[in-house]
């Protein structure tokens, strides 16, 4: 079994008489995208800030790559982790390029390597280096600022990225774009990402695994599908949202999983363009409504028939 990249072991944190984090144990595997979800005051940000020692646990331990971080120098630890916060926190008196270069400069990289790295990151975050390099943060839009924030966090090529509600202050369209881009970056770079949000939809869209927190306690730690199909309790179900819960659940399962596998004889094959097996059920439903049919053929990745999806299958649980 591989060693988790980040491990919380019975972590508790109190502020005065208030217990912000209450005995949380949680492991984040290398390369995993783990999202901490919960309402405000649930302790999710505190939990995140204990990973780079901006907060210290009162009990329990936090391990990064197997090492108890209580024994590490905080500055050295932080330089190995990208950190992105909601209000971005760019240095207003430094240019975009200088901001992104913060950690590489702290790490003492040679100048040419820093410049190369900055340019590469700006391209990764869809910021034209020639246009943006010399601008100051106040000259950027909110979305552009957060792109710089993410680029700055990635600059030292840290194995771990900590993100505290990074997109919450942005307008819905920019938020959606940046979310998609972050998912791509995660796929491309294979970083371990610990991401805090209060928005369950954001968590469902991004996470490999979701950790749901309530009043400092971990109430469920599971894949998005499990969260939707087997919510641990009413709290988790409320967090998902009861209204569109059915549709959200359809979004995490695929046509191939629900299709009746027994391939019918060609004569009984329902008409119409077959659906790819990895299409989410939510889209499959949309296709049926649009085409006005109650059943559609499904094909696998190689294009071979993989069964038939019936409208009735969608409501089968």
């Amino acid at each position: 079994m591989t060693r988790p990249m980040i491990a919380f072991e019975g972590v508790t944190k109190r502020f005065g008489s208030w217990t912000a984090v209450d005995g949380v144990s949680l492991a984040v595997e290398e390369g995993e995208f783990c999202v901490l979800v919960g309402p405000s005051g649930s302790g999710k940000s505190t939990l995140l800030r204990m990973v780079n020692r901006l907060a210290a646990p009162d009990a329990g331990a936090v391990r990064v790559a197997g090492e108890d971080i209580a024994g590490l120098a905080p500055e050295a630890l932080r330089r190995r982790m990208g950190y992105v916060i909601q209000s971005v926190g760019l240095f207003p008196h430094w240019t975009v390029a200088r901001n992104i270069a913060t950690v590489p400069v702290l790490l003492g990289w040679p100048r040419a390597r820093v410049r190369e790295r900055v340019d590469a990151l700006m391209r990764l975050l869809n910021l034209d280096p020639d246009r943006f390099r010399g601008l100051y943060p106040h000259q950027l839009s909110g979305g552009q600022q957060q792109r710089v924030g993410v680029a700055r966090a990635l600059a030292g090529d840290p194995p771990v990225l900590l993100m505290d509600e990074p997109f919450s202050a942005l307008d819905p369209i920019t938020r959606g774009t940046l979310r998609t881009e972050l998912a791509q970056i995660h796929r491309k770079t294979g970083k371990t990402i610990l991401f805090v949000t209060h928005d369950m939809d954001e968590a469902l869209a991004l996470a490999d695994r979701i950790a749901v927190l309530e009043q400092g306690r971990l109430v469920q730690h599971a894949t998005p599908r499990e969260i939707l199909t087997r919510p641990a309790d009413g709290f988790v179900r409320d967090l998902v949202g009861r209204e569109e819960w059915g549709l959200k659940r359809l979004a995490v399962e695929t046509a191939g999983e629900r299709a009746r596998p027994d391939a019918p004889p060609p004569s009984e094959q329902p008409p119409g363009e077959p659906l790819p097996g990895d299409m989410p059920l939510r889209r499959a439903l949309s296709e049926m409504i649009a085409r006005g049919v109650d059943r559609l053929p499904v094909m696998d990745a190689e294009g071979r028939p993989a069964g038939v999806l019936h409208l009735a299958d969608l409501v089968r649980s």
């Binding site: 780079n52 901006l54 905080p74 500055e75 050295a76 630890l77 932080r78 330089r79 950190y83 916060i85 909601q86 209000s87 971005v88 926190g89 760019l90 240095f91 207003p92 008196h93 913060t102 950690v103 702290l106 924030g149 700055r152 966090a153 900590l162």
Partner: peptide
């Protein structure tokens, strides 16, 4: 000096002296 700026300076592993000299005092 905005709190988020200080927070991210610390989060990136700047030492207190560096935060003071490169971030707080210039701002």
């Amino acid at each position: 000096v905005p709190a988020p700026v200080l927070e991210s300076a610390r989060g990136m592993g700047m030492r207190p002296a560096a935060i003071l000299l490169r971030v707080e005092l210039p701002l």
